[in-house]
């Protein structure tokens, strides 16, 4: 699913070059539930941006679904994000002026899915995360947990190859966070590949495998081949 080989991402700070990612290599197989952990500033956000095709590595090779990503144009990257990756963010990132249903439909609009089919898939996805009764609610009319469920539905609706979650429980209280994580477990059990980025050990513990990153290097590649 994800194959990373010697990925390097550098930032220039004045005269100095800082390696945000220093020759990172790892793999994620289809159906896995992997947590990428590390303290803030460790490079995990940079890694997530590269996995999520929001950014391109300076060196190394990244294959998503067997396809090389590094040579893509901006338009191709947008397409990959659209069709293959379901993002779930810490801040939910729903559009405040759209209701739950419209938010979930949004990525499918960019896929040119016909209206009726779009609506049906969005309804299914919302039902799946337990928001059947909230379809016409705007984000500010929903609790944090409901908003995150809505964001998960938005990610699910496009049937992505990979669900990429960045601190999905960071803005939620303990109990709601647990509910969301339980939902992740359930989705993984249904065959979805999930990569979860977090600094929280307890959250990371829910994943089948952990990849720990510090100072741009992978510390304990456990399980899977490197």
């Amino acid at each position: 699913m994800i194959q990373m080989h010697d990925i390097v991402k550098k930032y220039v700070m004045g005269e100095e070059e800082i390696y945000a990612l220093d020759h990172v290599s790892f793999q994620v197989k289809p159906g896995e539930f992997v947590a990428i952990t590390g303290p803030s500033g460790s490079g995990k956000s940079t890694l997530m941006n590269i996995i999520g095709c929001l950014d391109i590595a300076d060196e190394g090779e990244y294959r998503l679904n067997g396809q090389k990503v590094d040579s893509y144009t901006e338009r191709d990257l947008a397409r990959i994000r659209n069709r293959h990756i379901g993002f779930i963010f810490q801040g939910f990132n729903l559009l405040p002026k759209l209701d739950a249903l419209e938010n979930v439909e949004l990525p499918m609009i960019y896929q040119n899915v016909p209206h009726a089919q779009r609506r049906q898939r969005a309804e299914e996805a919302l039902e799946r995360v337990g928001l059947k009764g909230r379809m016409r609610h705007k984000p500010q009319e929903m609790s944090g947990g409901q908003q995150q469920r809505c964001a998960i539905a938005r990610a699910l609706a496009v049937k992505p190859s990979l669900i990429l979650a960045d601190e999905p429980t960071g803005n939620l209280d303990q109990k709601t966070g647990q509910e969301i994580l339980a939902l992740f477990d359930e989705l993984n059990a249904q065959g979805n590949t999930i990569v979860l980025i977090t600094h929280d050990e307890h959250v990371a513990a829910r994943a089948r495998r952990q990849i720990r990153i510090e100072d741009g290097r992978i510390m304990e590649p456990s399980g899977g081949s490197v």
């Binding site: 999520g52 929001l54 338009r75 947008a78 659209n82 993002f87 960019y110 938005r154």
Partner: peptide, 13 residues
């Protein structure tokens, strides 16, 4: 705009 781009809006969109 960031959200739209992240979930797959191309520049042209």
């Amino acid at each position: 705009i960031g959200i739209r781009k992240a979930i797959g809006a191309a520049r042209s969109n």
